[in-house]
Every structure is written in structure tokens, then in C-alpha cells.
Computed example of a mutant assay.
Amino acid sequence: MTEGIFYPPRQRGMVVLGILLTLLAGIFAWGSWNASQAEVGPVFMIQILLTLAVALPLPLIAYRTYALIRANYHLGRDKLIFSWGLRIEEIPLTDIEWVRPATDLTVPLRLPRFRLPGSILGLRRHPDLGTVEFLASDVETLLLVATAKRVFAISPADPRRFARDFQLATELGSLASTPAISTYPSFIVVEAWNSLLARYLWLSGLLLNIGLLAWTSILIPGLESITLGFNATGVPHAPFPPVQLMLLPFISFALFVVGWIAGLYFYRWEEQQILAFIIWASGTLTGILFLVAVLFAITPPT
């Protein structure tokens, strides 16, 4: 038997997640621009709060899109591997008790509460099966894979072929004994947090951004105008309304979050952890540079 890689249905999920990601990013950019044009007051605060509310789900939608792109089920001679973003489950074939369609259940399987097309992830309790973990993209192709510890709900695009190949693999028997391995996204965060250098870079970058936001908020009411850079001839640009200074902490924080996530991606591999530290250090340096930028913006040109 040759090893096989099965992919979940992706087309519908990629379309929906892509639209959501684009829509939220567009609303965030539009809200940030409107907030930069508003006068300091209730309207300004409402714009800021709405922009932040839209920004909160952006990393989650981006991660679920990435996870769907990378998702696959690898059926080998010795083990079955589920890969869904940063979630990886390696199960020895000898630990699998049975594989069957979810439609065979007498009590219907309840889906996770927070789900999106192409992203059916999470845990649910079933009266007969116990805890069921979903690593699926499509309800129509759900297969249940049962082990002694947990049942997994997966959705290979061709569930019949998957079940047939699994049956063949179990009949042939394993060539070697392999351990069961579970990797969760939170595990990477905890592992990185145990590094003193990573912890220092995370906290310093976060505190710099919080301080930048607080300092900017205090400065704005007392400013009449600000200057943001020079033109090609070295002449300062015309003064801007001071509320536009709020763009700087927003941009700085967005870069910090993107850098933090990118660093976690590289931290998964020991040989690439140096790249993670470089990215996190860049986030701290960026926060310092934005603090300097605010200082220059409030200093009248000479």
C-alpha cells in the first residue's frame, strides 16, 4: 500500500473566508481613516470602538483561512496524521478502533457553536461517543475516527476512498510502532512563553504599544496641529488635524500583532526559531520608532 494524502473540500470555505477577511480588513481601514478625520469627542470614540471591534476577529479569520489552505489527512502504513493549521494529531493505526460516517449515528452529532463554511473546528459532547473533536470543512462528508481517548470528526473530499484505504492499511498491519502525538496552537504559545527572551520581547512590544496609545490620547486634546513629514524638496507638509496622530498607534499595534503571529509560525521549527526572535525584536524596535515618530510629529518644524 502507498501512503495517501486526503484533502478536505476547500472551495466554498475559501470563498466565504476570503470574502469575510477582505470585508473586515476593508471596514477596519475605512474606520481607521474616518477616525483620523473626526474631531476629538463622542464621535471619535465611537469610531475608535467600532474599528477595534472589527479588528478583533481579523486574526481568527486569517488563521482559519491559513488552516484550511494547509489542512490534510495523511494516511500511512503505520499512522494517521491530521494537520489543520497549527493543530497536528498523529495517531498510530493500532490505536484506531473504527472509522464510520457520521450519518450512521442514531443520535445526531451536534456541530461546534462557532463555525464557518470551510472551518468546522472545536469540541462537542455526544451521549454515545463522549468528546468529539472536529477537524473538518464540510458537514456532508463527515467521517468519525474513534480512538480510546477521543473521537475525531474529519471531512475528506472522498470519504469512501478514505475508509477503503484505511481498511486496507489495517489489514496489511503496521510495520513499526509509533507514539501518539498531539500538537495544539496553544502549545506553541506556552512553549515560546517559557523562553525568557521571547517573554521579554512580547511584553516590551505590548507595553510600548499601550504606552504609545495612552501618550497619543493625552497629547491630542492639547494640540492645534501636527506635521507629518516632508515633501521631496525637504519642505514640511501642511499641518494636519491632531486627531490624525491616532493613526500611528493603530498602525504600530497592527504591525505588532502580525509580527507576533508570524513569529509563532517560525517558532515551531527549532532551526527557524532565530527568525521568530528577529521578528519579535523587530516588533519592539518598531514600537520605539513609532514613539519617535509621534515626538517628531508634535515638534514644530524649524
Rank of each mutant, 00 (worst) to 15 (best):
Q11A: 12
A198R: 06
A281F: 11
G283M: 13
N209G: 05
V145G: 06
V40R: 02
T302Q: 13
S36M: 11
F134G: 03
H74N: 12
S177F: 07
P185M: 09
Q273N: 12
R199W: 00
P117V: 02
R160A: 15
V15E: 07
G259D: 06
P42S: 00
G31C: 05
G76M: 12
V258G: 03
R115C: 02
I251M: 08
M45Y: 11
T2V: 12
I88P: 02
I27H: 05
G76D: 13
L255V: 09
R113E: 07
A67I: 03
T227I: 10
F162E: 13
G4S: 11
F6H: 08
L52D: 00
F230T: 01
V189G: 02
L247F: 06
L172T: 12
L68I: 08
P9E: 10
V43H: 00
A157D: 14
A29Q: 04
L135K: 01
E133M: 06
V258N: 02
T286L: 15
P221L: 05
L228W: 03
L264D: 01
L168V: 15
A297C: 14
P156Y: 14
E271P: 00
V16E: 02
A55F: 07
T131H: 05
L168K: 15
F250Y: 04
L228Q: 12
W84N: 01
Y7I: 10
R12Q: 06
I88H: 14
A180M: 15
A262M: 06
R199A: 11
S119N: 03
E224L: 07
G41Y: 01
R10C: 02
N34E: 08
L129K: 06
L248T: 04
E3W: 08
R100K: 15
V235W: 04
I48P: 05
R160E: 15
F187H: 14
T170K: 14
L203K: 05
G26Q: 00
G4I: 12
D78T: 14
T141G: 01
H126N: 03
E191P: 04
T299Q: 13
R199T: 13
S282G: 15
L213P: 15
L295P: 03
P92G: 05
L208Q: 14
S36A: 14
F166M: 13
P301H: 07
G85K: 04
A67H: 04
P117R: 01
A238M: 00
R161N: 11
G18K: 03
Q167F: 14
A146V: 12
G283R: 11
L143W: 08
T299C: 09
P242Y: 04
E140R: 06
S195T: 14
M1A: 14
E140T: 02
